[in-house]
Nucleic acid binder design. Structure first.
Lengths: 258, 258
DNA sequence: GGCTCTTGTTTCAAATTTCGGAACATAGGT
DNA sequence: ACCTATGTTCCGAAATTTGAAACAAGAGCC
C-alpha cells in the first residue's frame, strides 16, 4: 500500500481485520448517505482510493449482487441486499435484541431495566432484567399492568398520540423521569420507535427513590436514549412478522447446522 | 495463498475482482440459506477456509455491522443490512429495473415487449420496448386497455384470483400463449410477483402471427420466465413506496454528487 | 473539424496483506 | 480427571492488492 493510514488500528480491537474487506464495506456504506448512487470516480474520491482500486472492489461487489450498475454506469445498491434483509426479518426476534440492551442498562445503572409494549388498555412487560441489589424494584416478565398507570404508561400513551398538556410535555422531552406508581420508587422511561417512526414500546429503568435519586435518574436518561437508538437500529420495518407481543412468544431459534 | 482455486477466473469477466472481498461476500451469502446463523467453525467449513481466515473476515464484517454475534457466539445478519435495504427501497423505481429487461427481451425475440399492471377494470402499459421490425406490434407507453381483453388481461385476471377453468389453466401453466386481441397477432404473457408472492404486473411479448409462430412463442415463453425472475429479484416487499403505477410516474432520480 | 476535459478501463512491478498450520485458552461433556 | 470441541493468537511464506500511468471512449466546447 502507498499511504500509511493512522486510523488503521482504530477499527481492530482484537485479532485483526481485513483491510481490503473493510474498504469494500466502506464503499457499501457510502450508499447510506446517497441511495441514488455514485459514479466510480465519486466513490473513489469519497473513500480516498484510486479509481483502479475502487473499480476492482465495485466489480467484486457487483458480481456478487451487492451493487448494481445502470446504463449510465451509476452504481446503486444491489438486489442481494434485499434478500439478506428478508433473511434478517425472518430470524428476527425482538427479545434477542432487547435483552442484551437491558442487561447493559442494568449493569450501568445498577437498577432494574424493562421493556414494555402497549396492548389494548394494558401494558405488558415483555423483557426484564432485575437489579442485582437486595433492595430493588422487582417484577417478573409477562406482568400486565393498566396502561393509564405509572411512568411507562404515560410514556406509551403520549406516543400513541394522547391529548393534553401533560402528554405534550412528554412528547417534547422524549423521556419521562418521575416518582413511580408505587411508593418509594422512581422511574425513567423513553419510547422506542422503529426506523419508520412507528411506536414499538418503551424502555424503563426503575429503582428505590432513596438510591435512584435525581442525579442518577439523569444519568439513566442519557443511557436510555442510547439504548433506544440501539434497539431501533435492529428492528425491521413492517408488521409482517406479527405483533410485537408475538415476537417474544415465538419459539427459540438456533438449530444445528447441516 | 495456499490453494489454487480452479474456479478463480470464473467470476472475473473483465478487469479483475478481489479474491478477499469475494470470500467475505460468500460468507454473507451463507446466511441466505440459513438466517438462523452459523458458528464460526460452520462458516469456515461451509466456505472451505481455515478458521483463522473465517474469523478475520467475520470480525471485519461484524465491525462494520454486516454481521452480528449473539451471546452464544452465533453469527447472524447484522443491522447494517436493514439500513441498506431501506436505502434500496428509497431509490427504487420499477421502471429502471423493468426497462432493461424489456430491451433484452426485444433484442432476443425481435418482437415487442411490454410490462402491464392492473388498475381497477383496466390494464396500463407502464413500460414498453417496441420491436425494431417494420412489421411489428406497436403501442405507446401509458396505453390503457380493458382488463378483460387480450392475453395480458387474462393473465392478470388469473393471478388476481379469477374463477373458472380457463383461469385455472393459466395459473397452472404460469404462462399464456395465444392469438392476440387484434387479428394477425400472437402474444405470450406471464405474471410478475414480488418475493412475498404479491402480484406486481405482467410481462408480454407480442408480434405478427406470421412471423411470431408457435416455435418462436415457445422460445419467448422460456425467456419470459427468466425475465420474470430477474424482475422479481429486484422488487422490494411492501407497498410503502406507493402503488406500482406511481413508481413509473415518479420524477427521474439521479442527481449529481456533492 | 479539432480540441479539451472527463470518465471508465487495463497494465505492471513493488510490497503490503492475506493465508493456514500449529499452539493456546476455555468451556462442556463423559 | 480426562477428552473433545470451540474460538483465538502467532508467525513466516506467498500471493494478492495497490496506485501511477497509459489507454480508450465520450461529452462538451470553440
Amino acid at each position: 500500500m502507498a499511504k500509511a493510514d493512522p486510523t488503521k488500528d482504530a477499527g481492530a480491537r482484537t485479532g485483526s481485520t481485513s483491510l481490503t474487506v473493510r474498504k469494500s464495506l466502506d464503499v457499501m456504506d457510502s450508499f447510506l448517505d446517497r441511495p441514488e448512487g455514485y459514479t466510480l470516480t465519486q466513490l473513489a474520491a469519497r473513500n480516498g482510493m484510486s479509481k483502479a482500486t475502487a473499480l476492482r472492489l465495485c466489480a467484486t461487489l457487483e458480481a456478487c449482487g451487492y451493487l448494481d450498475r445502470d446504463e449510465r454506469m451509476i452504481y446503486r445498491i444491489g438486489p442481494k441486499v434485499l434478500r439478506l434483509a428478508q433473511g434478517y426479518r425472518h430470524q428476527f426476534r425482538l427479545e434477542t435484541v432487547v435483552r442484551p440492551v437491558l442487561q447493559r442498562l442494568r449493569d450501568q445503572t445498577g437498577e432494574s431495566a424493562s421493556f414494555y409494549v402497549a396492548e389494548h388498555t394494558e401494558r405488558v412487560c415483555l423483557v426484564r432484567e432485575n437489579s442485582r441489589h437486595v433492595i430493588r424494584h422487582h417484577l417478573e416478565e409477562g406482568t400486565r399492568l393498566p396502561l393509564h398507570e405509572g411512568v411507562v404508561g404515560r410514556v406509551l400513551q403520549a406516543f400513541q398520540g394522547a391529548k393534553g398538556r401533560q402528554f405534550d410535555r412528554i412528547r417534547a422531552d422524549g423521556v419521562l423521569m418521575a416518582r413511580g406508581r408505587e411508593p418509594h420508587t422512581a422511574s425513567v422511561a423513553a419510547p422506542v420507535h422503529d426506523m419508520a417512526g412507528r411506536l414499538i414500546g418503551a424502555l424503563v429503568i426503575s429503582g428505590p427513590y432513596s438510591r435512584f435519586d435525581a442525579g442518577r435518574q439523569h444519568a439513566a436518561a442519557a443511557l436510555l436514549l442510547g439504548a433506544r437508538d440501539d434497539i431501533a437500529r435492529h428492528v425491521p420495518l413492517e408488521g409482517d412478522m406479527g405483533k410485537p407481543t408475538a415476537l417474544a412468544t415465538q419459539t427459540p431459534v438456533l438449530s444445528r447446522a447441516g
